[in-house]
Design a protein around this nucleic acid. Structure first.
Length: 323
DNA sequence: CGACAATT
DNA sequence: CATAATTGTCGA
């Protein structure tokens, strides 16, 4: 009860912070603190107690929590209509892919406060936009919908067929929340590699070839990137589905396949856990490699399981990584 | 080309 | 102090 109120007020404060790009890192810190407050099971009785019991809360936030407990709000929180219009506009504009804080702020200054107003401004030739933003607007409604697992199962068949057409020995996996077994996903996160190319896989042009095939068969219907040999971002759709979907494809050297698989499967919290475990065991881990810090040697993994063994931790199935 | 924006 | 790499856009 008490905690919810505090989170509620602090959430309003982050939205207000978002309007000022110079407060970028304060916003990040505040969001981190809100996340920790949500994780914390228990009452918040004072700022002092919050500092002691909850991670990511320091002196400044402690004082703010005391103020919220005492007055129910924060004096720095603006309540005027203008600010609330701006925070809502910021939320909506930032939800368009291709628009970040800098552009959103500029648009709001120009009186563009919603997706529809942005559409009008483009139609009336008032502003210029990137291709990425155009695609973000074109598919805005579609992309608000989550993807049912069954639909990705169907996509997997198409992907398997087209990947095989490029090269029979390519390996691939759909990562992200799909691999973690969730019933819905925000996008499709595809990782591809090839056992015989331990480095410079991009020279083989597997990714551009695959993208060309996926366009030809009608699966990919629009693109956010075009020339990349390592990373592709675009829009896809299967006939049965009422909505277009976001797809990301990464092509990595086989030497980085299993670290990439781990990284792109997540979850974010699980990755943090494994990286920490790696450090404790004298290794550093990122999406590209597992490196022994003593010898500076990179371990070329042959499976995910091998990574868990080296780090002396029990194997986590993908479906157990949703922390 | 380099600086900047945005994404993951 | 604040993740790093990839890609796209714009202006000199």
């Amino acid at each position: 009860m008490n905690k919810t109120k505090i989170i509620d007020v602090l959430s309003k404060l982050t939205k207000q912070y978002q309007l000022d790009t110079s407060l970028k890192f304060k916003t990040i810190a505040l969001n981190k603190a809100i996340y920790q407050l949500k994780q914390f099971n228990g009452e918040i009785t004072s700022g002092k107690q919050a500092i002691a019991d909850v991670n990511s809360i320091g002196k400044g936030l402690g004082e703010r929590i005391d103020e919220i407990i005492k007055t129910g709000t924060l004096s720095e929180l603006k309540t005027n209509k203008e600010t609330s219009i701006q925070t809502n506009a910021m939320d909506e504009l930032l939800s368009i892919t291709g628009i970040g804080p800098t552009r959103a702020k500029q648009y709001i200054k120009d009186g563009i406060t919603s997706v529809n107003k942005l559409r009008d401004a483009i139609k009336d030739d008032k502003i210029k936009i990137t291709h990425h933003i155009q695609v973000g607007i074109d598919y805005y409604e579609d992309l608000t919908h989550k993807i049912p697992r069954k639909e990705i199962d169907d996509m997997k068949k198409i992907l398997n067929k087209e990947i095989n057409k490029v090269d029979k020995e390519l390996v691939f996996e759909i990562c992200g929340s799909y691999r973690r077994g969730l019933s819905k996903s925000g996008d499709i996160d595809l990782l591809i590699s090839h056992q015989h190319h331990i480095s410079n896989i991009d020279k083989q042009k597997y990714l551009p070839k695959l993208v060309a095939n996926l366009k030809k068969c009608g699966f990919i219907i629009d693109s956010l990137t075009s020339d990349g040999a390592k990373k592709y971002m675009g829009i896809c759709r299967i006939e049965k589905s009422p909505y277009a979907r976001r797809i990301d494809i990464r092509c990595v050297d086989y030497s980085a396949y299993y670290t990439g698989l781990l990284y792109f499967t997540g979850s974010k919290n699980f990755n943090i856990l494994v990286r920490k475990k790696a450090l404790e065991n004298g290794y550093s881990l990122n999406e590209y490699s597992l490196t022994n810090k003593e010898t500076d040697e990179k371990v070329i993994l042959q499976s995910e399981k091998e990574l868990f063994d080296i780090l002396d931790m029990e194997y986590f199935k993908p479906t157990d990584r949703d922390l």
